[in-house]
Design a protein around this nucleic acid. Structure first.
Length: 559
RNA sequence: GCGCUUGUAGCUCAGUUGGAUAGAGCGUUGGAUUCCGGUUCCAAAGGCCGGGGGUUCGAAUCCUCCCAAGCGCACCA
């Protein structure tokens, strides 16, 4: 419908003198339903160009618009010059039939849009996932779902760094713990662990080593496998042991949240394939790289940064930025139309370097979108849950899921825009009542299923071809209008990379349904009307189920 | 100190390209409901959109200054 109106508007506008060729009429759903179903402010926007009163332009536009009465029942000019359109009843019946026909595919785009890469989680395998990683994982997964529904062929990728200092420290931590296990009589030392008591570790434990219990567990496994030789293995062996164990933990956690990656991309492969050197050379060829103080620098000051950035340390080891740039070059070479990175707020100052580098190398950086999310604060009994920054003391994602269920965790991560600090209210999340928005949605779905079961129990059989034109009650009309918006909402959320639009929309659906349910009986009405209402209930169930599917949340038949 | 992000109802937050009387949920107060799942529905109260200045037919939205919070500012990732 929007497309239809948009096309009609454009042709009419084209016939009016003085309208710029590139003028984009805007159509949107007015906030106030008494203003109609769709409205355009085209006349207001044109007032400046045409140097005429907006209302006068609107009147002329309406006069020249040629609209199908079966689709648009009413057009009016209102306020300072808005043009309001109201849908015809016939159109709504068709729209409902369309939902039922498309069923599980309703909301999906018809046309393919290209291929997209979404990079998310991307936590290095140095420890269990934190609550913050959870927000990342769920945001990325849902953005990937949205792009999938919007017509993209989506690849979901997890990038990890297995070549740098972090992994070396991880290996050294494991090795030190092996020593502690095999030579408990050797001297030890204590290291600070943020707000907590200092932790006792073997003397060989590295600076900034990883203090978690899981490191000791990994060390124990190494000791079990190698006995006394467990102290003489190459560092690589400790890293492999740690990496494998920790990745298995991470994968388990992601699976609990129904987050599934298409694949993992490791930093080391960039070295092995010479991509690091090639990227550096390419930047050098563009004159954006120089040597100073034994290090290799990237001229980020050319892009307005205060300082240049080190790409290769004087030790000869690249900083993480160079592989990051090489990785993005690799993404372009793989031919993605759209590339999305989901990063925490701590990357906010660093990703512009990557985009600048891509730009310098001649890639279209507008195809890369970076979704930055702010940090999560867990709130219990109105108070923030203290989380020390040190690695031994934080709430893990697993612990959160243990406490609130995966569906609730996903929903709470998704219901706020990525760009705001998230207060995760644990008490609310655990509450199974209407205060908890995810239960409200699931309940509406379960209730519809219950009605359909009930109908079957009492032997009600709906007409196969119900007369949907009978649905003229205001609550019915409002519900149909809400249901038909799903594809547009999915599209909008996908384009804006804004999953949080969906929970809001689905709540509108649930509200519209419960109002309908409150005012209109289904079973027990005369057969034709009951059939039509059953069809409306089934369509609602479908919209809720499809919407929840996009969010990766279950649509239960009973609760 | 510099950069980025944020500041909207008591609380948590929407507000999509600058548009109509700034919205929702929770909480509060009042009401409805013999009925397909009361995990329901209706209504009311509640706002200097952090503050000042500017841009224009029109600003929560754009510009500018100030205030406050978060994150970042390593030859760490």
């Amino acid at each position: 419908m929007k497309d239809y109106l948009d096309a009609q508007l454009r042709t009419t506008l084209a016939s009016i003198d003085g309208v710029p060729d590139d003028f984009e009429p805007m159509l949107e759903k007015p906030n106030d339903p008494s203003h109609g179903d769709l409205a355009t402010n085209a006349a207001l926007q044109l007032a400046r160009h045409l140097r005429k009163a907006p209302r006068q332009i609107a009147e002329e536009l309406v006069e020249q618009l040629d609209l199908d009465a079966n689709r648009i029942a009413d057009v009016s000019v209102a306020g300072p010059g808005f043009i309001n359109f109201r849908f015809a009843e016939e159109f709504l019946a068709d729209a409902l039939a369309d939902i039922l026909e498309q069923d599980a595919a309703f909301g999906r785009a018809d046309e393919p849009r290209g291929n997209a890469l979404v990079e998310y989680v991307s936590a290095n395998p140095t420890g269990p996932l934190t609550v913050g990683h959870g927000r990342n994982a769920v945001l990325g997964d849902t953005i990937a779902n949205l792009l999938d529904w919007a017509g993209y062929d989506v690849t979901r990728e997890y990038y990890f760094n297995d070549a740098g200092r972090q992994m070396r420290v991880l290996a050294q931590s494991v090795k030190a713990r092996c020593e502690g296990l095999l030579r408990p009589q050797e001297p030890t030392k204590h290291v600070a662990a943020g707000a907590d008591e200092p932790v006792e570790v073997p003397a060989s434990f590295p600076e900034d080593g990883y203090l978690g219990q899981y490191i000791i567990d990994i060390a124990q496994a190494v000791v079990d496998a190698h006995g006394d030789d467990a102290l003489d293995l190459p560092l690589e062996a400790y890293q492999q042991a740690a990496q494998q164990t920790i990745f298995a933990m991470i994968e388990d956690t992601l699976q609990r949240l129904d987050v599934r990656m298409s694949g993992y991309f490791n930093e080391r492969s960039l070295y092995d394939k010479g991509k690091i050197a090639a990227t550096l050379q390419a930047l050098r060829d563009e004159g954006m790289v120089y040597e100073a103080d034994g290090a290799t620098w990237f001229k980020t000051t050319a892009f307005g940064k205060e300082d240049d950035t080190v790409l290769v340390k004087s030790t000869g080891e690249p900083t993480y930025r160079l592989p990051d740039i090489a990785y993005h070059v690799e993404k372009f070479e793989r031919g993605f139309d759209v590339m999305i990175d989901v990063f925490g707020a701590d990357h906010i100052a660093t990703y512009p370097d990557i985009l600048s580098a891509l730009d310098v190398l001649g890639y279209d950086k507008s195809r890369v979108d970076v979704v930055i999310y702010q940090f999560v604060t867990l709130v219990r009994a109105g108070e923030p849950v203290k989380m020390s920054t040190r690695k031994a003391n934080y709430v893990t994602l697993d612990e959160l899921i243990d406490e609130v269920t995966p569906d609730v965790a996903r929903f709470f991560f998704l219901m706020r825009s990525a760009n705001t600090h998230l207060d995760f209210d644990l008490d609310l999340a655990k509450e199974a009542s209407d205060k908890n928005p995810v239960f409200y949605l699931q309940y509406a779905h379960a209730r519809i299923c219950s009605i359909l079961r009930k109908a079957a129990e009492v032997g009600f059989e709906a007409d196969t071809a119900a007369d949907l034109g009978l649905l003229t009650h205001p609550a019915e009309v409002a519900l149909i209008k809400t249901l038909r918006r799903l594809p547009g909402e999915v599209q909008k959320a996908a384009e804006a990379r804004a999953p949080h639009y969906m929970p809001g929309y689905l709540r509108e659906v649930a509200v519209a349904f419960t109002k309908f349910y409150d005012q209109c009986r289904i079973i027990g009405e005369d057969h034709a009307l009951a059939s039509a209402r059953m069809a409306l209930a089934r369509a609602t169930r479908r919209v809720l189920a499809n919407g929840l599917t996009v969010l990766g949340i279950a649509a239960p038949e009973r609760m």
